[in-house]
Structure formats: structure tokens, C-alpha cells
């Protein structure tokens, strides 16, 4: 009898492990394409946590459902269950194992975070050495200017501005994030990177795009009325195409770009909404070399 129980439990655990591993493996499909080196690291961690989470969730709900099916009280059974008030060994086990798990997860997450090295906003203040390294490696340096509600990208070496973020593939990018009014957030889901932009601070941010294509940059920190419109295209292209684009953009004369927020705001001025709720006026559409 006892051996049978142990076998049943082992079987259940094995099944749970198998299903969890399967779910963890399919977790990669729940995420957007992996377009930056950082996304590989984040997705692996995510898959790991999904596996672990699935194991715990299935374990707990499985036990619960087993109980619900097999431990129902019979209709006229008014008796009580066994008066078990606890079990010291079990209680120690389910305290110690989660503690170990927590440190394992935290340790792994920390490793991933270090490898990502996307840099916090405070880093540049006390790591001049790294600054020197980044210059030496000749990272692609781009300035990102955010305002209510537009993105402007400035390529300082060529003195080009654009409302589309062009990036060379397979090369580390160094962004200097700034905001002209409120807190905005720099977020490209396909890259798995995000950073709030605090006004009056220059925030350094780094990542490496690894896949050519078109992606979407959105404002990830709520910035007021037209928050949802504050998006920009991100184009990752080969080094050659990137150089061509820079050449092309440099030739163009700066002109006002289309801006969704400004467009909607002007429409509202002409046909005010019934609600009459006011909004902060958007910044005038950015004047840039390149826009589409």
C-alpha cells in the first residue's frame, strides 16, 4: 500500500515535470520576435520561470482538484475530518524549499541582468572607465529626445534628426535619453528593453539589435492625454543600408513631421468634444531631416 502511494506520487511528479517543461519550452512563443541580444537572455529567464511556475501551479491545483474530487463529504455525513493540526517536517520543508528557490531565482535573474548590462541611469556618474571603454569600442551613439507627445532621434556625428529610429544590426547602440517635459518611457517590446526618461537627466542606455526588420518604439510611462499616440518606428538594417540612410537623411532639409498628437489636438480645437475636458497642448510637430 505504502509503496503504491509512493509510486503514484512519483508518477504525478514526473507527469507534472514533463508538462511543466513542455509549457516552459512553449513560453518562447508567447513573446514577440527576438530582435536584440538582450531578448535572448530575458526569454530564457522567462521560460525558466514559466517552467517553475507551471510546476508549482499544476502541483497546487492538482492536489486541490484531487481533494475536491475524492474528499467530498457524503450527503448526510456530519462528522469532522481528522483533527490534524500540523506537521512540523512538512512545514519546515515548505519553508526551506521556497527560500532556496527564491535565492536560486534571484541569483539567476541577477546574472541575466548583469549580462544585459543595459545600464541604469546612475551608472555614468561613477563609472568613467566604462564610459571610456564604450567610446573605444565605437558604439553607435544616438540621442533620444522625448516630449509630449513625440520622439526625435538625433545622430550627433552627422547632425541628423529623424522621427524614425534607424539602427545598425549586430552593433552595440548607446542611447542618451532625455525628456523635455514629463517622465516618458523608452520601450521596444521586440528588444525587451525599457527605461524611464526623467526630465533634466541624461540617461545612458545600451543594447544590441541582432535582427533586421521594422519594430515599434512606444512611450512606456504614462505621459498625459495623447500618451497612446507616442510611438515611433524602429528600423534595424545592415551596416550598409544604415550608412546609406544616414547619407540620404543628411541631404534632406529639415521639415515638420506628421505628429498624431498635434493632429488630433488641432482637430479638437476646430470641433471641440462634448466633454470639454482640457488637455495640455502638445509640443509643435518636430522639425527633422527625416520623417515618413
Amino acid at each position: 500500500m505504502k509503496i503504491r502511494n509512493i509510486l503514484i506520487i512519483l508518477g504525478a511528479v514526473a507527469l507534472n515535470t514533463f508538462v511543466s517543461l513542455y509549457i516552459g519550452e512553449s513560453a518562447y512563443n508567447w513573446l514577440p520576435v527576438q530582435a536584440a541580444a538582450e531578448s535572448l537572455l530575458v526569454d530564457r529567464l522567462f521560460s525558466f520561470l514559466v517552467t517553475l511556475g507551471a510546476f508549482i501551479f499544476l502541483g497546487v491545483t492538482g492536489t486541490l482538484i484531487y481533494s475536491m474530487i475524492f474528499h467530498r463529504a457524503a450527503e448526510y455525513d456530519l462528522s469532522d475530518g481528522p483533527a490534524i493540526e500540523g506537521n512540523l517536517t512538512l512545514e519546515i520543508v515548505w519553508t526551506v524549499i521556497p527560500i532556496l528557490l527564491v535565492f536560486w531565482i534571484a541569483g539567476y535573474s541577477y546574472q541575466v541582468y548583469v549580462k544585459m548590462a543595459i545600464r541604469g541611469p546612475m551608472e555614468h556618474a561613477h563609472s568613467h572607465q566604462m564610459e571610456a571603454v564604450s567610446v573605444a569600442e565605437n558604439r553607435e551613439k544616438i540621442e533620444v529626445i522625448s516630449k509630449q507627445w513625440a520622439w526625435v532621434f538625433r545622430y550627433p556625428d552627422r547632425n541628423i534628426t529623424s522621427t524614425e529610429l534607424h539602427l545598425p544590426v549586430d552593433r552595440r547602440v548607446h542611447l542618451a535619453l532625455t525628456s523635455e517635459d514629463v517622465i516618458h518611457g523608452f520601450y521596444i517590446p521586440a528588444f525587451r528593453v525599457k527605461q524611464d526618461i526623467i526630465p533634466n537627466h541624461k540617461i545612458d542606455f545600451e543594447f544590441t539589435p541582432i535582427r533586421e526588420g521594422n519594430y515599434r518604439l512606444t512611450d512606456s510611462q504614462y505621459s498625459g492625454t495623447f500618451f497612446a499616440t507616442m510611438a515611433a518606428n524602429v528600423v534595424v538594417e545592415s551596416a550598409e543600408d544604415y550608412q546609406n540612410w544616414l547619407e540620404d537623411a543628411a541631404k534632406r532639409k529639415p521639415s515638420a513631421a506628421y505628429n498624431q498628437a498635434a493632429f488630433e489636438y488641432n482637430q479638437e480645437l476646430q470641433h471641440p468634444h462634448a466633454s470639454g475636458w482640457q488637455t495640455i497642448a502638445p509640443a509643435s510637430p518636430p522639425v527633422v531631416n527625416y520623417h515618413n
Binding site: V42, L45, L49, V60, Y113, P189, R192, K194, Q221
Partner: peptide, 23 residues
């Protein structure tokens, strides 16, 4: 709650939170 707790642990992990924060 068990489900929410598991997604909570994911959110506590900095690299994942950086991706899904504010989403």
C-alpha cells in the same frame, strides 16, 4: 491567487520586469 503569485515572482525578477513593466 496561486496564479497571481507566480506571475508576481516573474515581475519581481528585474530582467522580466524591465520587459513587462507598465504593460
Amino acid at each position: 491567487f496561486v496564479f497571481a503569485g507566480i506571475t508576481g515572482i516573474m515581475l519581481a525578477a528585474v530582467p522580466i520586469d524591465i520587459h513587462v513593466n507598465n504593460t
